[in-house]
Write a protein that binds this DNA or RNA. Structure first.
Length: 783
DNA sequence: AGCCTCCTAATTTTT
DNA sequence: TTAGGAGGCT
């Protein structure tokens, strides 16, 4: 092999020459099924784009004969950029290079009539969906308390992910949502069709259904798409998988790139099985492993490898790097979340000028990756206090803001008069004196005549069902909509002018202006509206803009100022940073208890992959931290270090924990015949004598005690029973001592929880098992 | 229609 | 603890 490569080398174009051997193989194997197993940081995007370009350069396919899909807009954007760079030309015209959803939307608009839709159908977001579900649920007289709309939404979404239509929904799913799921699903789909709308799931499902039902159509596209490229294959769900199988069925020229170790979206329908099964799905598939990591140092990679090796269910890869050594993964424990945030904040400050013999780091080189978004708060609080610039990635989005959604509803109504949801949203915003009763009449009218709400409203005016002030206002609105729509279609006004005028003439901007001295955020909202209009300039027409915002919900990122990034581990996939902080590595938080409870070993393995993703984001410096007690929903809970820490080989860890502070457990000390009371009441400092905590007996004990942890399969439960608690370790009015809060008195006991009043810290709610961190003050005296 | 109070639930989230 | 929703009251 090496020889052939050497011979070929001078002939290879530069975009291939610069690849390593397996990457080259992945690019050059154009014919037949290829699975590229690309570990973290192994240059898969580089290989994927090179392959795309190679297909064009060799004349194997025209741009529009390659079906190339990614999951996120970010990934699609990057791929387009890189392909464009390599080709030295604009790539915008490449029709089938994009996200699954955008590519399917394109397909569906082209063949809308086959799916019973008009080509200008609306793509609904979750908010729209939820409102429809609520209406349906109300109509069915279902108690929303017990059967929330969100549950129905997720049930149906789940079905769509698995390619279940109301018609082919298996009987085994019948009992979902109180046995009404199927019927509500069917009603929902009817409703969508009548609205000339699709939800996200439909974009994919409808394409698959169309292709399955129309042999001709399928053959046409099988022929058109000579090559198929798929990014992040481990994240594909059933529908996506079916779509790919359908399209590739003929020539089998399908190249999927993925990493089973980075599959972290099982909870939203991704099937790791798809990647594990590739070989049996596609005969004679070529499996290529990209294992050379270009991102992280040797030690970071070794630590990550240690963690992921604990998973049983994986194809297996061995990442390696030519870089040697590096900083060991730093591990540090703290008392609680507040101190953890303070330490990390201080450390980042110090890193900017250089600390602990490390190089200097810019803020933008540093990120904090958390398991759950509520963890971000402690950091935001701290950073706001110290004035450290930070940026939260994946926060609330521009297009989800109230005023932006309102404005978009106006736009939608201009483009598609059948968009009842949009009508609903803006009919009385701003107030037009069209309250419940008027809207009821409009709805009634539309239903009877089987017309859109807009036409129903028109009808109400003609037949004088609505009168007075409301009628005048309604007439004004309808006339404005009609006039602007007409002018837009005729080309008299641009989509931008249309947008400006509808917001102006409908009174929408005026509404916010008049609110300006009443609500503090009105100014910001007007700003957002301006920004929205400005955003329109990038599009040729309103339809294109609406498509964009439906599919691309991204917020504009400001990159001017140096900032620390805070985000969830999920949001961090695909990113890399020189320095990464991974706080909250405690059992129950990470791995998340819920994940383990709900999905057992499968859930635990996905959590571990998340840990792997986290560590592999770091290029040079990775710092993991955990706390002894954390406030969860206002109650203090004791915690032990995450079991994932056990998976990191000790030789790659540097422990920064102050002696005595790590996963410090009071009960452990009790068991261990504490030398004297001073150790307890006073301080940690007395334990400072112990040099390396990680090697200390205490640490080992912690490890041993953790070994008794059962796998989730066997169920993880508190070993403390109510009976034990009642049997009276604690009673109301007992004087107690807490490791952090000091002395206090028990005010109330309930189940295993306790309300305690502390001399210094005031009243606290402590959650079971309280004996983990409370001790009777009397027993202290005894010691 | 808007404000207030009570209740409940609480990972991850792209498209 | 807190945020968001529902339901009630003015």
């Amino acid at each position: 092999m090496r020889k052939d490569q050497d011979l070929l080398e001078p002939l290879l174009p530069p975009y291939i020459r610069e690849l390593n051997e397996p990457q080259q193989e992945a690019v050059l194997s154009l014919i037949g099924p290829v699975l590229m197993l690309a570990g973290a940081g192994t240059g898969k995007t580089k290989a994927l784009t090179a392959r795309f370009v190679h297909l064009l350069k060799t004349g194997s396919a025209h741009p529009n004969e390659i079906f190339a899909v990614t999951f996120t807009n970010k990934a699609a954007f990057e791929m387009k950029n890189r392909v464009g760079d390599l080709l030295g030309r604009n790539v915008e015209g490449f029709k089938w290079l994009g996200t699954f959803h955008s590519v399917c939307a394109r397909f569906l608009r082209k063949h809308a009539e086959l799916a019973g839709l008009e080509p200008n159908f609306t793509i609904l977001d979750t908010d729209d969906q939820l409102r429809i579900f609520k209406q349906l649920i109300q109509a069915e007289n279902i108690d929303e308390k017990n059967w929330p709309a969100r549950l129905l939404a997720s049930t149906i979404d789940n079905w769509k992910n698995r390619a279940f239509t109301p018609e082919n929904l298996p009987m085994s799913e019948n009992d979902k949502y109180d046995g009404l799921g199927r019927s509500l699903y069917a009603q929902y789909q009817d409703r969508l069709t009548r609205l000339n709308a699709c939800d996200f799931g439909d974009l994919l499902l409808k394409v698959v259904t169309l292709l399955q039902a129309n042999k001709d159509l399928l053959q046409r596209y099988q022929k058109l798409f000579k090559y198929i490229l798929v990014d992040e294959y481990q994240d594909t769900n059933v529908v996506q998988y079916l779509l790919l199988r359908l399209l590739a069925a003929g020539h089998q020229n399908i190249c999927c790139v993925g990493d089973d170790d980075q599959s972290i979206y099982g909870w939203r329908g991704a099937e790791v099985g798809n990647i594990l099964r590739f070989e049996s799905d596609f005969k004679d598939a070529k499996i290529i492993r990209l294992e050379q990591n270009y991102r992280s140092t040797e030690y970071i990679l070794a630590a990550a490898t240690g963690v992921i090796s604990a998973n049983k269910n994986r194809l297996g890869k061995t990442l390696w790097t030519s870089s040697k050594g590096g900083e060991r993964v730093r591990l540090i424990g703290h008392w609680d979340g507040g101190e953890e945030a303070i330490w990390i904040s201080d450390e980042i400050e110090a890193m900017q000028v250089g600390t602990r013999g490390l190089r200097k780091y810019n803020l933008s080189e540093v990120s904090i990756l958390v398991r759950a978004s509520h963890q971000m708060r402690a950091f935001e609080d701290r950073f706001l206090k110290t004035g450290l610039p930070y940026r939260v990635i994946g926060g609330p989005r521009f297009y989800e803001r109230l005023e932006v959604r309102d404005a978009i509803a106006y736009f939608r109504l201009l483009v598609s008069s059948r968009d009842d949801l949009a009508f609903d949203r803006i009919i009385n915003t701003p107030k037009r004196g069209l309250g419940d009763s008027a809207q009821q009449k409009i709805r009634e009218n539309s239903r009877v005549a089987d017309k859109s709400l807009l036409d129903g409203a028109r009808e109400c005016l003609l037949s004088n069902k609505i009168s007075g002030k409301g009628a005048t206002q309604l007439r004004l609105l309808l006339d404005t909509l009609d006039r602007l729509r007409k002018m837009y279609i005729q080309g008299t006004i641009s989509h931008i002018e249309m947008a400006e005028q509808i917001l102006e003439e409908s009174g929408y901007t005026r509404m916010w202006m008049s609110l300006q001295d009443k609500t503090p955020d009105a100014g910001g909202r007007l700003e957002n509206l301006k920004e929205l209009i400005k955003g329109l300039e990038e599009f040729e027409n309103m339809e294109g803009f609406l498509e964009h915002i439906a599919l691309v919900m991204e917020n504009s990122t400001d990159n001017e100022v140096e900032k620390v990034s805070i985000m969830t581990l999920h949001a961090a996939k695909g990113l890399e940073f020189p320095a990464v902080f991974l706080p909250g590595w405690e059992d129950g938080l990470f791995p998340s208890q819920r994940s383990m409870d709900e999905s057992g070993v499968k859930g635990l393995e996905e959590e571990r992959r998340l840990a792997y993703v986290g560590i592999t984001r770091a290029e040079e410096l990775c710092t993991i931290s955990f706390v002894g007690s954390r406030q969860v929903y206002g109650q203090w809970q004791s915690a032990i270090p995450s079991r994932f820490i056990d998976n990191i080989p000790v030789e790659y860890i540097e422990n920064l924990t102050l002696p005595g502070l790590y996963g410090y457990q009071l009960d452990e000390r009790i068991n261990q015949d504490i030398d004297n009371a001073a150790t307890l009441s006073d301080d940690i400092q007395s334990r400072a004598a112990m040099a390396d905590v990680y090697q200390s007996p205490g640490w080992r004990r912690l490890q041993n005690s953790k070994k008794t942890h059962k796998d989730p399969k066997v169920e993880i439960k508190s070993s403390i029973t109510d009976a034990e608690i009642l049997s009276g370790r604690f009673l109301v009015d007992d004087k107690v001592f807490h490791q952090k809060f000091g002395y206090g008195v028990i005010l109330a006991l309930d189940g295993g929880n306790a309300d305690v009043f502390f001399e210094k810290a005031g009243e606290k709610k402590l959650r079971a098992p309280i004996e983990k961190y409370l001790i009777l003050a009397d027993s202290l005296d005894e010691l």
